[in-house]
């Protein structure tokens, strides 16, 4: 089924008339997010997988690292790639092997927000200039699509990057040793800042603006504005790909509203990371409490 049928005229009309009375179909305020759930599945030694649920939307991000030769024109930097392939799991409208427009837009937004803004410090991934570096690969798997994939994917990706540990490296002159995960404690990635994407969908020429649209709301909207910023209010990117025109003040309002949400997401990520660390470090804690001498 290569294309998703549009919602019926009745559904659209009902949604719009409810919105004009400031009512969303799930009774949320216009600027409220659905309940967000962030977890880090995997065993005690497995880092770098983040499972995000925003309402029914579910995205999984997985980070992996391998040692490769750096690009010839960037000898002092490592390589960071984001792969985002939509599969029929989330929607029967998406085919394997064929790039849907949603996939292209999602990939582009994630690239701009995370790669181009330098969220991940690629210079720290260099091992031997011009010869060896780390290639950090991020795979985004969209498991369930109920709207707002961009926000969910970005959240999952940032959380996974903060969670991931890469193998430790030691350099003795010419010789490089990459320690496997079991021999030495892996090392966190060096992140300069943590940008998040906040999507604002608008209706009625910009009169009605709401955040965290469900799939039905996305199908009925006139356009959307995606603002990527970090918790300090620094804007990494603003994207408005077509759609009905919105005036400049409307865009400023989007940005202002986004800052609040970014702070909320940032707090959420930190909380969950701290919880996860405590859960994984149970062994470490016990080690510290022992009175025995290692020697």
């Amino acid at each position: 089924m290569p294309h998703q049928p549009a919602p019926s005229t009745n559904e659209q009309a009902f949604l719009l008339s409810a919105l004009r009375e400031n009512i969303r179909l799930d009774a949320r305020p216009l600027d409220a997010y659905r309940p967000i759930d962030l977890s880090f599945p995997g065993g005690p030694d497995e880092y770098g997988t983040a499972d995000v649920r925003i309402g029914k939307t579910r995205v999984l991000a997985k980070i992996s690292a391998e040692v490769v030769a750096p690009y010839a024109d960037r000898k002092f930097e490592g390589v960071f790639t984001i792969a985002c392939e939509l599969s029929p799991m989330a929607s029967a409208a998406w085919e394997v092997g064929r790039q849907d427009q949603a996939e292209i837009l999602l990939s582009r937004l994630l690239e701009k927000t995370i790669r181009r803004s330098g969220a991940l410090d690629t210079e720290s991934l260099c091992i031997v200039a011009g010869a060896k570096c780390f290639h950090i690969r991020a795979d985004i798997h969209v498991l369930d699509h109920d709207g707002n994939l961009v926000d969910a994917a970005c959240l999952a990706l940032i959380a996974a990057l903060l969670h991931f540990r890469r193998p430790d490296v030691e350099i003795h002159g010419e010789e490089v040793t990459v320690f496997p995960l079991r021999e030495r404690e892996p090392v966190k990635l060096s992140m300069q800042h943590q940008p998040f994407c906040i999507t604002t969908s608008y209706f009625d020429g910009g009169l009605i603006m709401l955040q965290d649209a469900t799939r039905l709301e996305e199908a009925c909207r006139e356009g959307e504005v995606v603002v990527s910023m970090n918790r300090f209010g620094e804007v990494c990117s603003m994207a408005k790909y077509g759609g009905a025109p919105v005036d400049g003040l409307g865009l400023l309002a989007c940005t202002k509203a986004a800052l609040e949400k970014v702070k909320m997401l940032d707090r959420l990520v930190r909380e969950r990371l701290a919880e996860d660390e405590k859960r994984r470090d149970k062994g470490g804690l016990m080690k510290e409490l022992r009175a025995e001498n290692e020697r």
Binding site: D45, T49, S87
Partner: peptide
């Protein structure tokens, strides 16, 4: 008709 099965591996042996 088509019966479409998608299998996503999330974790594997280390």
């Amino acid at each position: 008709t088509l019966i479409q099965v998608t299998l996503q591996l999330t974790t594997g042996p280390t």
